[in-house]
Design a protein around this nucleic acid. Structure first.
Length: 887
RNA sequence: GGGCGUGUAGCUCAGUGGAAGAGCACUCGGUUUACACCCGAGUGGUCGCAGGUUCGAACCCUGCCGCGCCCACCA
């Protein structure tokens, strides 16, 4: 097929170029259907549904880590033999999308009303087909292994049926109702908002104190929204407040209007706050509304839907902010303003879409009664049916579900699922499965459908099962529900996660996911939240262009710790790119050295010490990575999803162990040839086969390219996940550790003495018997790595040679001609001081009587050994110092 | 106002009771033929502060300070 066998080095150039392989490989994966799940499969299912991005959105730094991690999870499970499904799709994003299209119309001087409802909705669909879903193409760039055959959209036909079905059912069960309540209203979007669509910020306003009544009947109240006083229908005080006890039940005149309003006693009032008296505006404040309900106060709306005053008279038609000033002036003229405190910083709600100040407003809307649903959603986490990782964030979830208010689900928009409710002229309500032709109550055929649409989150709350075919009992639903993991940012835990839990438990009725894995938010290098407005947002695609997708993915994974924020800077990506290239070149070395995966792994007694060491380490790394992915119930705090650990473990192993030591050690037998070369080539092949499979979920492209080259197999996407089969080999690990210690110490010495790397020093090793045993067979390796000549195990070091000391062994080096006496003396003096400090510290510790009594024996023993070692080192160094020439 | 988290090397972070760690940055040395997107060596920490528990504390307890996030119907 290729000429690889003839000239292996030509197919892997010395640098990895991501753009050469990424799109080719992705297309190949899709073509071969690797990501298409089969509901009829015998394999166990593993399901993740994507948190559907807004149809208006594009891929940004917030998505990139979550996509990487979801992809890693499903790719690994696929390799582990699961029928893995990662289901993609998008959210219709009601207000956001409607706003985008309305802005487009505005550019032509049009409003949605100019088009009319039907044409406008048509226009939104048209927008969607032209510009929507840019993010889907970007997901291909990221390498997302999603099942494109199952892509869904919250407004598509199936999902709309699900919305209809659950609405009808919940209405029948009394969980959806219509009522006139105080809701959050956006005077610009002209729609109701739910609590979560309101963002609070501390704004400067003015607190104005007003005097109502006169003389003995005087009561002072304060407000930040003076204009609402036009709708005051009462004054509330605490029932135990002696200052006002005599006024409760009396009527007081409201300035400007002349209306007589009652003073009522209500527990809700905090007597410590302000004057302890509250003006009550039931139509424009949720608290006041509640008070009014308890005391049968009148409801008077003073504004229309755009926030203009409707009360006849001098203020009529004024915008609420203009009216605030005008009313204040008018009251001041009447001598009713007793204090003005400005600036007064207080929390003000804003529309999360357009930042307009939200106006609490009395309005007839549809609501979900959440108490029973939220209770079930809380219990599912409390009893462990759904696990939240990290567990600490469960508390936030409980706070949310335990304190949820009824959810306003109707929106005065056109883009969305229209509320499936019909009214007849007599006001009867019909909520049918299919569009009705007559009123269910009176049979009237004069029906009109509710004009409103449902909150976007209503349909996204159904996502885990609506995407699988619900309300039909489809094979997908049977196979893939409940899903395994929901992975999303912790910022979204409340509104979306809780809603999916409520709907899933109600409709299925089973939890929608077994685990909620929460990631942090991406921050820039200085720890600031990335945002478009501050100019700190970085386009992940730009980085992918310059460093490759795998580098971006790996950098994101390496910075991910469960539930904590993820700092990201270009240097991290650069480092990850360097790692992809390191991996590329290491594999290139393996290929050029004839590494192979053909045939059985040679038996341990045929393998070199280095072979046995690296396989032993490889088995540990596999186990470590598995625990980091899956957690381990027997280890406290090991909850899994430790992607940062996984990335760091694999990078450290690949770079610091495989590349820095194993490859260097393997060069010797390979160069010597013969059977030992064959053995090491086979082990080398094994190491890269396994390592590349371990890395594949995080770095899909480079591993695919390399793994297929090394193994000659079809694709690492469908390769099995490694399971450790090699024996742990403590002897080999000890031997290599001793070798590493010794080589590192000699290198350090050479560096300090400024001996040129090219100079090969004659050397002898004097070692304690057990260490000698470990080192004797590896003098050639030591010589090669430390650049020594004629290395031999000996019983003594010739006079005048320098010494390097490691635990259990000494190396004598013949520096004749190369030694710098001054530098050597300085080195020795420094080393003696260090050894002395160590001895003093350790002996002080041992001298403490309670240490010997209470510390566990192994600790004491270890400490004694340290003391002996330090003393021996001091003696040795002192001897060397006095032996220096010119002394 | 309430809650949660966090403070370890210049930077970003691991480390949860027994000799302070990694990556990046920095310094020095390198034609060692897989890789300069590299190799080798090194410098650098009163583990926020103050108490306490313990033979022993970065780790457990208490208080304080700084920073971050979330929730909230403070008129």
């Amino acid at each position: 097929m290729t000429t690889r066998d003839a000239l292996p080095e030509t197919i892997l150039p010395p640098q990895y170029t991501p753009s050469d392989v990424e799109s080719v490989l992705y297309d190949r994966w899709i073509e071969r259907g690797y990501f298409t799940a089969d509901a009829a499969s015998e394999k166990p299912a593993y399901t993740i549904v994507i948190p559907p991005p807004n149809v208006t959105g594009s891929l940004h730094m917030g998505h990139a880590p979550q996509h990487t991690l979801m992809d890693a999870l499903t790719r690994r499970k696929r390799m582990q033999g699961y029928e893995a499904l990662w289901l993609p799709g998008m959210d219709h994003a009601g207000i956001a999308t409607q706003n985008v299209v309305e802005r487009e119309l505005a550019a032509d001087g049009l409003t949605r009303h100019d088009l009319g409802r039907e044409a406008f909705v048509e226009r939104v669909w048209q927008w969607k087909s032209e510009y929507g879903g840019r993010i889907l193409g970007q997901m291909r760039r990221l390498g997302d292994g999603v099942d494109w055959s199952r892509e869904r959209f919250t407004m598509d036909e199936g999902l709309s049926r699900a919305v209809r079905a659950i609405f009808v059912r919940m209405y029948a069960d009394g969980l959806i109702y219509r009522a006139e309540r105080i809701i959050n209203w956006c005077p610009r979007c002209l729609t109701a908002l739910s609590d979560i669509e309101v963002e609070h910020s501390d704004d400067e306003g003015e607190l104005v104190s007003l005097r109502y009544g006169d003389g003995a009947n005087e009561i002072i109240v304060a407000t930040t929204r003076v204009e609402t006083m036009l709708g005051d229908t009462g004054i509330a005080v605490h029932p135990d407040d002696d200052r006002y006890r005599h006024l409760v039940g009396t009527l007081i005149e409201l300035p400007l209007t002349g209306r007589m309003i009652p003073v009522v006693a209500d527990e809700h009032v905090d007597p410590e706050f302000g004057t302890g008296a509250v003006k009550v505006t039931p139509a424009h404040d949720p608290n006041d509304f509640a008070i009014a309900q308890r005391h049968q106060l009148e409801l008077i709306s003073v504004m229309d839907e755009s926030g203009a005053i409707t009360v006849p008279g001098q203020f009529e038609g004024l915008d609420r902010f203009a009216a605030r000033d005008a009313v204040t002036v008018a009251l001041r003229d009447l001598g009713r303003v007793v204090a003005e405190k400005r600036p007064y910083v207080h929390s003000v709600g804003h529309c999360s879409r357009c930042r307009t100040v939200v106006e609490p407003r009395l309005s007839l809307q549809w609501f979900v009664q959440v108490a029973p649903l939220a209770k079930a959603a809380g219990d599912a986490v409390r009893d462990g049916r759904t696990r939240i990782v990290p567990a600490e964030l469960s508390k936030r979830y409980f706070d949310w579900v335990d304190n949820m208010h009824d959810w306003c689900i109707s929106r005065q928009l056109w883009w969305g699922h229209r509320i499936p409710v019909w009214y007849c002229p007599d006001g009867h309500i019909t909520v049918p499965d299919t569009d009705p032709s007559e009123c269910a109550t009176c049979g009237s055929s004069e029906l009109h459908q509710d004009e409103d649409v449902l909150d976007t989150w209503f349909s996204s709350g159904l996502w885990p099962f609506s995407t699988l075919g619900w309300p039909d009992e489809t094979p997908d639903l049977a196979k893939f529900y409940p899903t395994d993991v929901l992975l999303t940012g912790y910022d979204i835990i409340f509104f979306w996660v809780a809603r999916m839990m409520m709907f899933g438990l109600y409709a299925m009725p089973d939890v929608p996911f077994k685990t909620v894995a929460l990631t942090g938010l991406v921050r820039d290098a200085r720890g600031k939240k990335m945002s478009k407005s501050s100019g700190t947002a970085i386009d992940p695609l730009d980085w992918m262009d310059r460093y490759g997708t795998d580098a971006v993915r790996f950098a994101l994974a390496r910075g991910s710790n469960p539930g904590s924020d993820l700092p990201m800077a270009e240097e991290w990506v650069e480092g990850a790119r360097n790692f992809t290239n390191k991996l590329w070149n290491a594999t290139r070395f393996a290929v050029m050295s004839g590494a192979t995966v053909v045939g059985d792994l040679p038996a341990p007694d045929e393998q070199s010490t280095a072979d046995r060491w690296i396989l032993s380490r490889l088995a540990q790394v596999v186990a470590q990575v598995d625990v980091a992915y899956d957690g381990d119930a027997s280890i406290d705090g090991a909850e899994g999803f430790e992607f940062g650990d996984i990335a760091r473990t694999l990078q450290g192993f690949a770079w610091n162990e495989v590349c820095d030591w194993y490859i260097e050690l393997a060069k010797l037998p390979i160069n010597r040839g013969g059977r030992e070369a064959e053995v090491t080539r086979r082990v080398l092949g094994e190491v890269f086969d396994v390592l590349l499979r371990l890395l594949h979920p995080l770095m899909p492209f480079v591993t695919e390219e390399l793994w297929t080259t090394v193994t000659g197999n079809e694709s690492v996407v469908i390769a099995p996940w490694p399971t450790p089969v090699y024996a742990a080999d403590a002897d080999a690990e000890r031997a290599v550790a001793a070798l590493q210690d010794l080589v590192t110490e000699v290198r350090k010495f050479r560096s300090e003495q400024q001996i040129k790397p090219g100079v090969k020093l004659p050397a002898v090793i004097v070692a304690e018997p057990d260490v000698a045993l470990l080192l004797a067979a590896h003098t050639a390796e030591i010589g090669a790595l430390a650049r020594l000549s004629d290395v031999a195990i000996s019983t003594g070091i010739p006079d005048g040679w320098s010494e390097v000391h490691v635990p259990g062994a000494r190396v004598g080096l013949d520096l004749s001609g190369t030694i710098d006496v001054v530098a050597e003396r300085a080195r020795l003096v420094k080393a003696i001081a260090a050894a002395q400090a160590e001895r003093d510290q350790v002996s002080a510790k041992l001298a403490n009587p309670s240490f010997a009594d209470k510390a566990p024996p192994p600790v004491v023993e270890k400490t004694r050994a340290r003391l002996a070692e330090a003393e021996a080192e001091m003696r040795r160094l002192t001897a060397l110092l006095s032996a220096l020439p010119g002394q």
